[in-house]
Structure formats: C-alpha cells, structure tokens
C-alpha cells in the first residue's frame, strides 16, 4: 500500500530546547551518586535525564494533543506526528500551558484558527447530534424492534406436529448421530 505521507507517521515529540536538569539537582545527585557507589554494581552509571524540561507538563501536553488532529498529516494526532507543523503546534501548546492556560482555553485557541477539524472528539452541536446520538438511537430502535418481533413471532410460529414418517427419520438420525452433534 502506498502511504502518501509516511514520514509523518513517526512519532516525535522531543522538544528542541533542552535545559540541563542535572545542574539544578547537583547536590542531591552527588549524595545519590555516593549511595550508588556504595550499594550498586552499576555504581559508575548515571541516570539519564528526561528530555522534557517539565515531565509533568509534557505529559499533560501529550494527553491533550492526542485528541487533536495534525492538519497536514493524512490522519494522525498532534501527539503522534513528526511533521514540522505538529512540532510547532506542540510547542505552542506547551508554551500556553506554561502560561497557565487551561486545556479548554488552548482548545478554543486552536479551534478559532483551524476550526472543528482539529478536534478528534467532535463537539456536540446540532450538526453532530446524529453522530453522538446515533449509536444509542440504533441500540434503542434495534432493541425495540427485536423485542416486539420476538413477541409477535412467538404467536405466529406453531410447532408443526411430527408426522409418523418424520418420527422414524428422527429416531434413525438420533441413533446415527449420537455423540457427534454439538
């Protein structure tokens, strides 16, 4: 199968600017390091630093952007896309989060610029009532039809009495088929 924008498929949410966390915690780390030296055979190895400046905020950003669509990609979330465009928007979301904007405000910001198309969770409005209500309408209608059909059907169906010949066949069948008819 031909994928038209396959390079956009690869996930990349690695931020470009990385500040060095280790400096901030140098003191603490030294103590930890000493503890490691004494306790662990891995003593010389140092723990790798997370890429994100603020892992908690990063998780929030990823969670939000998983429900948003990357417009330039074929069909991918902002979190899942490696496209430049997705990188920019992730940066934008990250910055807005740092500026204490709520998820709602960020979504409104994006919808104002790109329309409802960016939302993987379509908003509930008159044009999408059928979308959101459809499945439950299907279920209710189906269950209703099923119920009344079964009730009516029970009255319609009569057990045909077996004829003499059918009885003989049946007996023969039972004998022959015993044990292999699930």
């Amino acid at each position: 199968m031909n994928l038209a924008l396959p390079f956009a498929l690869l996930k990349n949410s690695y931020p470009q600017k990385i500040s060095d966390l280790r400096n901030t915690f140098a003191g603490k780390q030294l103590i930890l390091l000493l503890a490691f030296v004494l306790l662990s055979p891995l003593s010389w190895a140092k723990e790798a630093a997370p890429v994100a400046e603020d892992p908690v905020l990063e998780r929030r950003m990823i969670a939000l952007s998983e429900d948003l669509r990357c417009l330039v990609c074929q069909n991918e979330s902002l979190a899942g896309s490696r496209a430049d465009f997705a990188n920019d928007l992730r940066r934008e979301i990250r910055e807005q989060m740092q500026a204490n904007k709520s998820d709602r405000e960020i979504i409104d910001f994006l919808v104002a610029r790109y329309g409802d198309f960016v939302l993987y969770r379509p908003p509930v409005k008159p044009a999408t009532y059928l979308l959101w209500g459809g499945p439950f309408a299907f279920l209710l209608t189906g269950a209703g039809i099923l119920f009344f059909y079964l009730k009516r059907r029970r009255k319609q169906v009569e057990e045909p009495p077996l004829t003499e010949e059918q009885h003989r066949h049946a007996e023969a069948l039972l004998k022959e088929d015993k044990g292999n008819n699930a």
């Binding site: 417009l71 330039v72 465009f85 920019d88 928007l89 934008e92 610029r113 790109y114 329309g115």
Partner: peptide, 13 residues
C-alpha cells in the same frame, strides 16, 4: 521564522 504568525492565521500548508 518560527511560524507564529502562521499559527495565528491558521496556516497549515
């Protein structure tokens, strides 16, 4: 250079 005006205008392609 950083695509910020682009975001304001809803540029995607």
């Amino acid at each position: 250079p950083e695509g910020r005006i682009g975001i304001d205008y809803g540029v995607y392609g």
